[in-house]
Design a protein around this nucleic acid. Structure first.
Lengths: 364, 364
DNA sequence: GCCAAATAATTCAACCACTAAACAATTTCG
DNA sequence: CGAAATTGTTTAGTGGTTGAATTATTTGGC
């Protein structure tokens, strides 16, 4: 119960645009001022919240003490490995990017261990720089363009040529990362989480990421839906033309053949229509009100828009009752890496009690 | 916290196959025997649980007192209106059907008010019969073949010819139902809930219901996903052949044109393939491991099976890693009505504290 | 310039719900 | 018949929340 209320208070402060006082938090949560005071004290002494001195003055009365998330506490290490680059960043509890390293290089010739060692080196640099800056890296998340099974095993990453790679074990070989909890997730899933953070408004949307392959991250009611085995979002292999072009997955007429990066670069005329058909299926099935186009789609959003919307208008049963909103991604190429870092700090935000417990143990 | 634990105890008893003792519940939930005792006493005196005398003897020790859900407490009234029948049933807390009334008649000529008045009469009979039997009808849920907006407004039910009908208001005109909380939901959604109850095992599946139209109910992690506006599951209008037959929804190549009841009756050769294509999209997007075929599909399941599975094998990216299970629905034509009644008792089960509060007020 | 009103935060007693441990009840087994 | 086992209750203690009173610090009227 205390754990729940700690999270409630922390989220309230986090989601508030200004720097709320204890009294404001009390009003927003429905908890008593006394309770909020006690909880806030714990969060402050545990290094998750800080009191800020100059609160905005308003009317009579004792001045309020503003509260805000710390920028020197726990942080998340976001990692991404993709076909043509490696990237690492550190995001603090407020969501600010504190470190950012990107290394452009084709990863396909390298074998997985080499690639992950290079990424590990980048990650180690980011971690050390962040910790020199007063941050405590709470964990790392890695975004990969492929299917991930539980416990950080990459089952297949077709465009990297990977198969059954234990990415966590490889990263843990780097001495500076050996003690760090690492999770692995699909690139589109994490990018969707990143987008959720910056959009704020819409808790339910589909993020679709056009890279060499096409992935999607589905956020329902503010939560990423990963599927039972973590293999949701494979929109690239949704059939749009049943008897269409053969796909390297063994099927025919997959969306990827018409709207993947290779098709786009060769000026495929059906790209927007194919996207529209696949997205209509998503909306008909899930009643998703917002679709965010990311990856390679974001820069050419305006060129795709009309073609997609035409299909949605025609093919979505409820398009007459309420239109589907189409938006370019707010984060650019950093989305997955940002989302990965965000996943770590999200975990701290959702379970501050766990963090306090662990961080008190650190000093015993 | 008490509310949460009351629900926990009640669910534990409900999900248990035998009639567990307080000690068994304590072991299953992790709560202390003392706590469980206190909670169980509340549930017994509130009329949700009953103690059963003859517990199965085993070994030494004081004999246990078995616990089981009451069969004389709260009950759910499930209603269904469809093209060619009206139906009402009452299900008690244990999930047993206690009353069942079905009236076959084509509803299309009747105007909505007439049809709902007839259904209301059926519902009133079911309620009175149930209450004569010692049950307390806690609420009613109505399954309709159409799109429902919040607060019981049926936006469109194409096959009934309905548009913007306030079904709750119409039912409340029946004097015997005037005091009853009534909700309205899509037929496939409620059928999926009904299926969830009887399957028990799989908490994540897609239920697909082949009637005149084709609807789907999506159950994720044991919860029905209704979509932001409650319009999820419109799989009948997912595009399978982009340039295919025109559909009355204004689009082309909708699944309904190839696998709707009318197509099935005319021996459509593409039915199974079309279903397979649409279902592949669902699995690729959501990683759903189980698909349940209901409505008109259930009796012809074996005829459809191979055709659907062939498409799934070809078109689902992860079909090589883990196959998708295909099953006929366990409940027959009663699924939606059963699911509707179930939705009511599900609410009681999930918030027993609320029920206890309300039922204590009833006697003040 | 001072006091009243207003607002923020803390302190303190009471209470609720859970836990742990002792205890009572009732059986089986040697 | 008594020891062991098992269920269920009682009792004392604890963590966490509430509500009321208290303290702290400002504005504004006179």
């Amino acid at each position: 119960m205390r754990a729940h209320n700690l999270a409630l208070v922390l989220q309230t402060v986090a989601n508030s645009t200004n720097q709320p006082s204890r009294a404001a938090v009390s009003a927003a949560t429905g908890l008593t001022r006394a309770t909020v005071s006690a909880l806030v004290d714990d969060l402050v002494s545990g290094g998750l919240l800080v009191e800020v001195d100059p609160p905005p003055r308003t009317g009579a009365g004792r001045p309020a003490v503003g509260l805000t998330l710390t920028s020197t506490g726990p942080a998340g290490l976001g990692l991404e490995i993709n076909v043509d680059y490696l990237a690492a960043c550190v995001v603090d509890l407020t969501g600010a990017v504190r470190q950012r390293f990107v290394e452009h290089a084709d990863q396909r010739p390298a074998d997985p261990a080499q690639a992950l060692a290079a990424l590990g080196a980048l990650a180690a640099r980011a971690r050390l720089a962040a910790e020199a800056d007063g941050l405590i890296v709470a964990g790392a998340a890695l975004a990969v363009p492929g299917l991930v099974a539980g416990r950080g095993l990459v089952r297949v990453a077709p465009n990297l040529g990977w198969q059954d790679i234990d990415a966590v074990a490889e990263l843990h070989r780097v001495p500076e990362l050996a003690d760090l909890p690492v999770t692995v997730d699909n690139e589109a899933n994490l990018a969707a989480l990143g987008e959720l953070r910056v959009t704020g408004g819409d808790p339910t949307f589909l993020y679709i990421s056009g890279e060499i392959g096409i992935g999607a991250g589905l956020v329902l009611d503010g939560e990423l839906y990963r599927g039972v085995r973590g293999w949701s979002g494979e929109i690239g292999h949704v059939t749009v033309y049943p008897d269409g072009r053969p796909c390297r997955c063994g099927s025919r007429g997959c969306l990827e053949q018409y709207a993947g990066q290779e098709a786009l670069e060769s000026g495929e005329p059906l790209a927007a229509a194919a996207l529209g058909i696949a997205l209509s299926a998503v909306v008909n099935l899930l009643d998703v009100p917002v679709i965010v186009l990311g990856g390679a789609y974001a820069p050419i959003f305006e060129r795709l828009r009309e073609g997609i919307e035409a299909e949605l208008r025609q093919r979505v049963l409820t398009s007459g009752l309420a239109p589907v909103a189409l938006r370019p991604a707010a984060l650019g190429a950093d989305a997955a890496m940002r989302g990965a870092a965000d996943a770590i700090i999200r975990a701290v935000r959702e379970d501050p009690a766990g963090w306090l417990r662990r961080s008190s143990q650190r000093y015993v």
